[in-house]
Amino acid sequence: MADLEIKDLHVRTEDREILRGVDLEINRGEIHALMGPNGSGKSTLANTLLGHPAYEITEGSITFKGEDITGAEPHERAKAGLFLAFQYPVSIPGVSVANFLRMAINAKREDPIQVKEFRTQLQHAVELLDVDRAFTSRHLNDGFSGGEKKRAEILQMAMLAPDVAILDETDSGLDIDALRTVAEGVQRLHDEQGLGALIITHYQRILHYVKPEFVHILMDGRIVLEGGVELVERLEREGYDQIRQEVGAGPTGALASGDGSV
């Protein structure tokens, strides 16, 4: 059984169904890329995996490390080892990055982390993400630039050391140097700690630095095509329309995965 198993996931918001039967398996140590046009449901999948209350699961299940977490509270999923780097991180005024991280780390532990240990870990993460130490005394995401927010997401990921992380367009809004830093950081966490990742992106460039073994294409709420890195190149060449035609996906199209839902 895979570490993270998503089976026939159907998700809706108040007004409509967004995910229409998603199957996906991710293990620790594996890097996956998830691509798909705007509005295809990528963020919805990411948020649903962490238990966002706006998304209702009408069918299917999510299993993590053998436990059914389909209905679990978001913080329980996080404690179990899931992480989401947000596409649009919100600001938390009044609490510094460092204090927030200390609270988050302590939430996972029985005894609060020793000051010294915390400092060492923070120093590591700060170096990995190539940010100024003073960065960690600023209020979390409050007045951060787009790039700073994305770095702060990966900094938190480095500190919280999840088993599987979902990175929702962490690459967008980053200049080329920042992109390299962030992507190499992810790769290192993968190499050193065995991080498993689902990297949601529109672009090939991040995949120059983090090498996915598996690529999935999401369209209209379904995974319509799966393969290796060669899929990414094909996408850049041909665009989504070509693929859409081929797999017959559309607002009402048939499925690649073929399990006929109504």
Partner: peptide
């Protein structure tokens, strides 16, 4: 929700 996804 953001903070919950960090384990709080």
């Amino acid at each position: 929700f953001y903070m919950q996804t960090r384990g709080l």
